[in-house]
Each structure stands twice: as C-alpha cells, then as structure tokens.
Design a protein around this nucleic acid. Sequence first.
DNA 1: GATGAATGAGACTTCATTCAT
DNA 2: CATGAATGAAGTCTCATTCAT
Lengths: 189, 189, 189, 189
Amino acid sequence: MIRAGAELLASNGYAATGMLDVVAAAKASRGSIYFHFPDGKDQLVSESLTLSTGRALARAAAVVEASSSTGEAIERTGEYLAEVLNATDFRMGCPVATVALEIANTDNPVLDTCRTFFDQWHSIYVNSLLRDGLAADDAKNLATMILSVIEGGLMLARTSSDTTPLIDACRSASGLIDHFTNSSPQESS
Amino acid sequence: MIRAGAELLASNGYAATGMLDVVAAAKASRGSIYFHFPDGKDQLVSESLTLSTGRALARAAAVVEASSSTGEAIERTGEYLAEVLNATDFRMGCPVATVALEIANTDNPVLDTCRTFFDQWHSIYVNSLLRDGLAADDAKNLATMILSVIEGGLMLARTSSDTTPLIDACRSASGLIDHFTNSSPQESS
Amino acid sequence: MIRAGAELLASNGYAATGMLDVVAAAKASRGSIYFHFPDGKDQLVSESLTLSTGRALARAAAVVEASSSTGEAIERTGEYLAEVLNATDFRMGCPVATVALEIANTDNPVLDTCRTFFDQWHSIYVNSLLRDGLAADDAKNLATMILSVIEGGLMLARTSSDTTPLIDACRSASGLIDHFTNSSPQESS
Amino acid sequence: MIRAGAELLASNGYAATGMLDVVAAAKASRGSIYFHFPDGKDQLVSESLTLSTGRALARAAAVVEASSSTGEAIERTGEYLAEVLNATDFRMGCPVATVALEIANTDNPVLDTCRTFFDQWHSIYVNSLLRDGLAADDAKNLATMILSVIEGGLMLARTSSDTTPLIDACRSASGLIDHFTNSSPQESS
DNA sequence: GATGAATGAGACTTCATTCAT
DNA sequence: CATGAATGAAGTCTCATTCAT
C-alpha cells in the first residue's frame, strides 16, 4: 500500500493520487486505509515518500560508490534513470518532484520530507566531489548543480516522453565537471 | 482571467487550481467562464500557459541578448528568477513545471503547450551557444543541460523557500561553461 | 431547505440529520447545499434553528397574549404542543431540545442559538408573571420552572408517544401557579 | 465497558457515541465487543442504560426516603444533580434524556428502556406524594410535573453550562408544592 | 476466547460543468 | 451576453460490523 502510494505519487502527484487509487493499486479495501494510516492521506503520502526517497538515496549512493569520479557517477545516474523511465512508461522519475512543486506554497508537513530528501541527496554529491579533490565551497555549489541537472533532466524527459534530454543533460554535466576537475585541480570556480 | 489562471497554475499546479479560484482572483462571475472558455478548464489552462510561457520566453531571450556569453546569461537568469521568487513569496518559478509534471502521464493536450515551451526555450540557448562558437551537437546538449539546471534549481529553491540553490546551480553552470568554452574553444565535449 | 432542516433537526437531532436527508426532503440536488450554505452543515443547522425558534417564540408569545394569566398560558401551551405532537406523529416538539443535548458538551456555535432561544422564551414568561403581579425574583425562578415543565413534558411525551405527560405536567403547573398567585398575592416564595 | 458506555451516552447521546469510543474508554480490545455484545451497539446501549438508570432510580428513591416531604425531595434532588453536573463538567445529567430524544421517532428497542426508566421514576414521586396525603389523581399528575421540571431543568443547565436553571426550577417547584399541600390539604387541583 | 486487521456503506464536502433567467 | 443557481460525480474520512489467526 505504501509502495502503491509511492508509485502513484511519483507518477501523478499529490492531488491526482486518490486514496481510492492507492487502495485499488494495492488491492486493499476502502476502509482499511484509516486503520493503517489514522492520520489519513498526509500520513500515507509521508510514509510513501519516506520509502521511495530512501530507496532513491541508496541507489544514488551506490552509483557514486561504483564510479571512479563524480562525473562518471552523473552519467551513470542519468543512464540508470533513463532505464527506469523506459521501464515504467515514463511514470517514475524523481520520487518527490511533482509533490514538492505542488505543495511548495503550503505548510504541508510532507514538504519537510521533500526537503530532507534533497538535502541528503545533495550530501552524497558533496562528499563525492570532496573525494575528487574539490574545495568545500566548490563541492557544495557543484553538488547543487548536479541535483538540478538531474531533476531538470527528469522533468524534460517526462514532459517529452523521451529520455534524450535526461541523457544529454547528464552527459554534458559529466563532461564539464570532468573537464574542470582535470584541467584545473588546484583553482576554484 | 487568463492572467489570474497563469499565476495560480505556476503557483499551485493543475489540480489545485480550481475554476472557482480563477474566477475569484479575476473578480469575474461564475457563469462567465464557459462563455469565454467553451472547452472548459483545459482551454483556460492552455491559454494561461500560452500567455505565461510567451512572457518567459521573451524574458529569457532578452537576458541572452543582453549578455556577452551564454555563461553570463545563465547567471543573470538565475539572479532574475531569484528576484521573482522573492517578490512572489516563492510562488512563481517556471510557468509550466508543476503542471507538466502533473499531467506528464496523461494525454492532456495541455502537455503540448509545455513541450513547445521547453523546445523554444531550448532553442534560445542553442543559438546563444552557437554564437559562442560551439559545435552544433555540443550546443544542443549543453542547452539541454542549461534548461535542466534552471528548472532543477527552481524546484530546489521553491521546495526549500530559499533562492540559494537556484543561484548556486546557475553560477556553477555558468562557471563550468565559461571554463569550457574559454580553455578549449576548438575541442568538443 | 431550511424548513426541511428544521423539521428533521427537531425530529431526529443533529447527528441523525444528514445533509442528504435534508436535500431529499427539500427536493433539492446534492451539490446545491454548499452553494446556499457555504459553511456546510453547521450553517444549515444554525439557520434552520433560527427559523424554527423564531416561530416557536412567536407562538409562545401569542399564547401568553391571548391568556388572562400565566397559568392559563401554560395550560394552553401544553394543549397546543400536544396537538402539534399528534399532527406530526410525535416528531415536532421543542425545535432545539434534541440538538441542544447532543452538542451541550461541544463548542459548536449552534449551541449559542439554543441558549438564546431558551433565554428569549424565558423572558416571555418572566414578563407574563410580572404582569400577574409577582416579584421580580419569583418571576424569574417561576419562569425557569415553566420552561422546564414544558421541555420535560415534551421529552416524556415524545418518549412515550403519548401526549398525556405533557398535558398533565402543564395542567399541574398551571394549577399550582394559579393557586399560588391567587391565595397569596402579597407574599414571596 | 458498560460503565464507559453509560457515561458516553449520557454525555454525548446515541449517535455520537461510537463503539470505538466505548472500547477506548474501557481500555478493551476492538474485537471483543461482539463477543460480549453479540447484538451490537443496541445491546451495549441497552445494558449501559439499564445500569445507569438503575443507579439513578436508587438515588432518587434514597433522596425521597431521606426527605420529610416531596417538596424537600425535589429541592434536594436538584441540588444533588447540580453537584453532579459540576463534578462532571456538565456531562452527566439524565442518563437517558439525550438518547430518548434522539431515538423517539424510531422503533429502536432501546426506547423501551427509556420509557421504563421514566415510568419507574414517576412511581417514586407518586408514592411520595400519596404519603404526603394527596389524592391519587393529583399525585399522578404532580409526579409527572416533577419529572418534567427535573428533566427540563437538566436540559437548561447543560445547555447553558450553568446549574442555576436546575436549582431555580426545582426550588420553585418545591415551593409551589409545599404551598399547595400545606394550605389546601383537602381540596384537589 | 480474544485480538488486530479488514470491510463496505455512508457521511460531509468540493469541483467542473450546465441551466434558466 | 452575463449571472446566480443547480447538478451529480468523486474525494476524503468514519463507522458498525465481521474475519482470520
């Protein structure tokens, strides 16, 4: 049920994900939701996003771990996400992106889950860049850019039902970063 | 009314923008909607997005025009959008982002408006990069990355109610691009 | 619709009066409620009770006006209410009694409407008793007793589907009051 | 569990008393209800009201026993009930009043429990008045009035969160009855 | 025997849309 | 042409009741 919620949220967003849809996708009964999630939709959303963001962070860390540089990690991440998009008919991209934008101007506590996700994901790239030898400031800023590239690439890909924008954006970012770290290991941006 | 719709759509997205809200914001009468927009909500959304994307494209082109390089244009665009975020309490970022993600997996014709917007915005940066001397392929890929950085940066900024991610991401991208175009004007990524 | 609500509330109380019931009784459509009563059930309840209590107060005042003594007014009121009970299959007694008891321990603003009703009804008997020559203190206390007799009598009558308790209680109260005011016009209770 | 139900019913009535509330108040388990009360809510309500009305009748009888006249008994009963109201934050008044009014127009068998309660309570005052020397008819009618005064007084007190109406109504009734029985022991109302 | 979980009808409410004036 | 009113499907949530362990 949490899993079904996570998929629907990533695919359709907060408002378009009805409790009935979740229940149908999880093959559960109408009334059972409020036994497992007494606080209703927000609780289900919160737990669903906690699940899906946890997995996403683990995958992101694994890709970084398996890569010899941050640039390589970006490129691999883009390729991996492109596969996911293809495998899910362009439904699953970022687990929180749609929801985050929908509720950005509310005081919905789910927004905290989104913020935390972005923060932790950011840390993964910061650490990777530090390992690549970058200065702390450069690492922080570049990690923000990497997150942005991936999120923006996913948005373009889902909007156009085409993985090319995501692949291209990640490959470009990867190239630029490698070019930067290789050609100027001692200066700052 | 179209204007009111554009603001609400950018701020709250497709599902959370009710016809009633638009009518109230535009101080129009309930029943007049279907005189002006016989095809209902989707028509209103479509015309609203056409208006707001037109303005966004004009601004993007103007910034590019006023900049001596694409890297500078990116940085200026980030700063401009940060101002907009601040001025609108983080409501107005990309005019279509939220809507695009919400309806990405539907066959809603509004999605075409979103795609067109991204395409045209992409062209602006492609042309700018060509003017900077890049090869066609590089320009296309880099323009995609630029779009991604801006869209992703806006998402991070709106989610955290803080313009820093947007500024940092754009500045990093600008730095990398300038570094790349200056140090290696003849090679390709 | 307000009228239908008033009848259902007097008959079945707050919780058992569904919006659907009101709509069905008023032959209106499901969604029209929230056009006329944007604040929902509580607003409908409030306006319904305002209508029915207004009528009840007018009738109570008219009966007092038409009577030569408060005692006579009580007896006539009991007979009148007995007729109403018979005519409505024991559905309509006090317009607010059931609702008042149901929400007595909540902070529902409808409770104020109930309190006001009792206060104004009380005043009618206070004035009548003052006209009969009673001291202010006696009048106030006796008026409270009269209200209690009528409300209690209505409760007993509705519970037993029999108007006898109401008639008996009012007649007894009438007799006692007449006996008191006649035999001791100068002393106080 | 029966005890918890009795308190909730007196306080909130039939509809607002959920099985879940009872179970929670009694610290019992959800599924155990239908082992102890196979006939469901109505059985629980019935047994709860049987318990609470039994206690109320015993107290009423005790007060009558301890009083030298029916008038005195009424006054003492009013004072006692006022204490209960104060001690329970105006939650506990008559054990059946709210429920009786809610279900008066249904064929719910619980209504019989309410009727029986009123009948037995009525008998207590009839007997007390007969002991005071009243004729059978007068005693019956006056007992009905006494019941009405107490029930009505409780309703007014709970509605206004103030014991004054109850005290005043009972005191007035007491005074009138004493005045009547003393000044005219031989006539009839 | 007792319990956590499941069930589905029904409550209140919102929404895009249409109608009568 | 414009407007207040009407419409009914659908959404979130609650509840009394039953089931599998």
